[in-house]
């Protein structure tokens, strides 16, 4: 059972790694679909919890895969998920970046980049939307999300303060 889960997890994340255009958030909806809807490894709430923990802790956002892997299959799951999510894209980056410098100013590279940027923005927005839908289970939670977005956008306040306020409101049972 655990070995099956490890294999599925590893293969699935390794594939996703190749489609993470613009960063980790691009693959969050697909991850959510796989681990919550298809495999039933966790609930919607647990998924939102893990995203929140990964965001509040230091380190790249992609580290949520370690938490998901742990939730599915313990330490082995965490390590397999992390390696699967990094190895394919890192290998591509390593080999492609060596030839890429030559095409720094090539027209095709500028065009491909210009074409991928709007796709990656849309994917990031989709990731944020899926996270918000999983996280906001009450009207007040939606208000906290919107207020946090506004403060984060208009001020340079450290995200840690925003997390602290959210956590405190949650603890008081307002959400």
């Amino acid at each position: 059972m655990k070995v099956d889960a490890l294999e599925t997890l590893g293969l699935h994340f390794a594939l996703l790694s190749l489609f993470a255009i613009g960063g980790a958030m691009a693959v969050v909806p697909e991850m959510h679909r796989q681990v919550v809807d298809v495999q039933h490894w966790m609930t919607d709430r647990q998924f939102a919890d893990l995203i929140a923990i990964a965001q509040a802790a230091p380190g790249p956002n992609i580290m949520v895969v370690t938490l998901i892997g742990y939730q599915v299959a313990g330490i082995g799951g965490g390590l397999v998920a992390t390696a699967a999510m990094c190895a394919p894209s890192c290998l591509i980056t390593f080999f492609v970046s060596r030839v890429f410098d030559r095409f720094k100013d090539a027209q095709w590279r500028i065009v491909v980049h210009a074409g991928l940027v709007p796709v990656s923005v849309g994917l990031f927005a989709a990731g944020a939307f899926v996270v918000a839908r999983a996280a906001d289970r009450s009207l007040l939670a939606v208000v906290v999300t919107l207020a946090t977005a506004a403060v984060a956008y208009f001020t340079r306040l450290s995200p840690l303060w925003l997390f602290a306020v959210g956590a405190a409101l949650g603890y008081l049972g307002w959400l």
Binding site: A48, L146, T148, A150, V165, G166
Partner: peptide, 19 residues
């Protein structure tokens, strides 16, 4: 669970600002 619910709502807001 309550604390994490609050964290998750804030995390979603930070992502929205990044969008």
């Amino acid at each position: 669970q309550r604390v994490l619910g609050g964290l998750a709502a804030a995390a979603a807001g930070l992502l929205a600002a990044m969008v």
